[in-house]
Design a protein around this nucleic acid. Sequence first.
DNA 1: AATGATATCTGACTAAAGTCAGATATATGC
DNA 2: GCATATATCTGACTTTAGTCAGATATCATT
Lengths: 290, 290
Amino acid sequence: MLDPVSRVRRFNRAVTSAVGALDTSFLGRGRPLGAARVLNAIGHGRSDVGEIRDYLGLDSGLMSRLLRGLENEGLIETAAHGDDARRRVVRLTRTGRREFSTYEAISNRQAEGFLAGHAQREALLAAMDMIASALGRDSIGLSEMDPRSKEARYCLGAYYDELARRFKQGFDVTLSRDPDARDMVRPRGAFIVAMSDGLPIGCVGLKGSGGDLAEIKRLWVAPDARGLRLGRRLMEAAESAARELGVKVLRLDTNSALPEAGQLYRRSGWTEIPRFNDDPYPDLFFEKRL
Amino acid sequence: MLDPVSRVRRFNRAVTSAVGALDTSFLGRGRPLGAARVLNAIGHGRSDVGEIRDYLGLDSGLMSRLLRGLENEGLIETAAHGDDARRRVVRLTRTGRREFSTYEAISNRQAEGFLAGHAQREALLAAMDMIASALGRDSIGLSEMDPRSKEARYCLGAYYDELARRFKQGFDVTLSRDPDARDMVRPRGAFIVAMSDGLPIGCVGLKGSGGDLAEIKRLWVAPDARGLRLGRRLMEAAESAARELGVKVLRLDTNSALPEAGQLYRRSGWTEIPRFNDDPYPDLFFEKRL
DNA sequence: AATGATATCTGACTAAAGTCAGATATATGC
DNA sequence: GCATATATCTGACTTTAGTCAGATATCATT
């Protein structure tokens, strides 16, 4: 009915008016929007004045005045940065934390109110995740984490669930060769998680042995974040970590029930090789020389 | 990983910065945002000053000044309304139309740019439709339309496609008793389409015979708009149209492969009755006395 | 024709946001 | 140690948005 561009524009209109409503709800605390935004940025853990300025896109003069205002209200304290006394760091006072938490309560209530009226809650949330990831594509960051961290475990859980759904015979992680976490931490290996604004949306493991040979494991991208070329980015990050660790040959196993994975490997310089382990799940094996 | 409220808030953050970027791209024409918004409202066919003021939520003084500014730029012309000379109507001049079309081009380019980089185009658009409908839930309007109109045909096509997917034996509209369009237009019947900001997202037909008996046909709600109680609203609108036309008894047929439909009927006062036609597809029959 | 309601406009104002040119203190490279 | 760059701050300014109290013209009702 509507062409794609009109659909995007319809979305923009809907969202613009919703954002406007969200903004006005912040005005209820008797503080202009600019000051409220700065306070919230600080509350969410940003402490570097310059960083906040960049994040909010403010002029340095304006930023300075807003900080002075919040300081006079007794909500924040500033101090020189330890490494560089030209820079300033900001933190909330006790009063500031209280005020911040009422802003948080406003935001939470707003979000709950939105969800409350909708029957298709999970579908709606999935759609929101997808759009947030797509809009924030440029800000998806890859970070090395411990495979036992909360974020990594979330990704691995989602990965196992997906294998269970997609393999005809199901998937039981205890039957597979579950790598030792220490093999996926420096100096032997690495584990990389893709984060988009606080949400883990992909991961990959590099399982090393200390020698020339290492294995890629647990490559996963959240369904809502597919199509953003994140798989490729994760693989590149894993390969570059492997190079740093002196690895010469990378291997991986996969299953033909995951065709998009096989395609990614073939397109990025991997070559199929004969089976190199007796894990019951994989039926495709690849190698890449670095 | 994230709780529902955090997911909604993550979406809000992503969207807020995207909307900001969209706004700043409108400033490239050397005109403040307020004036640009008014110009665009006029370009999109709004002509009544009061209507534009309500739509944009502007004070009458501010509105007046913005109009004066656009007039001085030679972009618009105002005149008294034909029926009521207190009201004013606005329209674009030739220059104004040109300027408006460059704003349109900016919006279109922005939307195309967003879509261009994404592999999962259709899924992303579906997610956007869903969210736009959910956000604009309060502004979903039901309007009676000709069942041969573009909007109605779009809904019917989507409805047939869905039946084909959901019926084990498929669905071929030519085998079913396709109602004559004239039976779904006043004075015999009615056809109602739910529109959300230009997009048809649901429909229902009331097929009358001129007598006391009429039939409900073609109840459909777009998958992305389910959970908004739109089915119920459509049924209520159809029933009230039936009452207006003097109908005493309503009937409908449906299929047990569409359980959500059966549930809706049972919950809103319909009672199951024996088969009353020989259409090959339905296996459930309902009646409601008005 | 008089009365009150309505739509828009004008003038006078305030608040918020944003800009810009220095001033000040500190860091970095030579 | 000196020149240069950087981070923040201050003061003086402009623009945009928004508010409010009338003024003006028109409409609807009696």
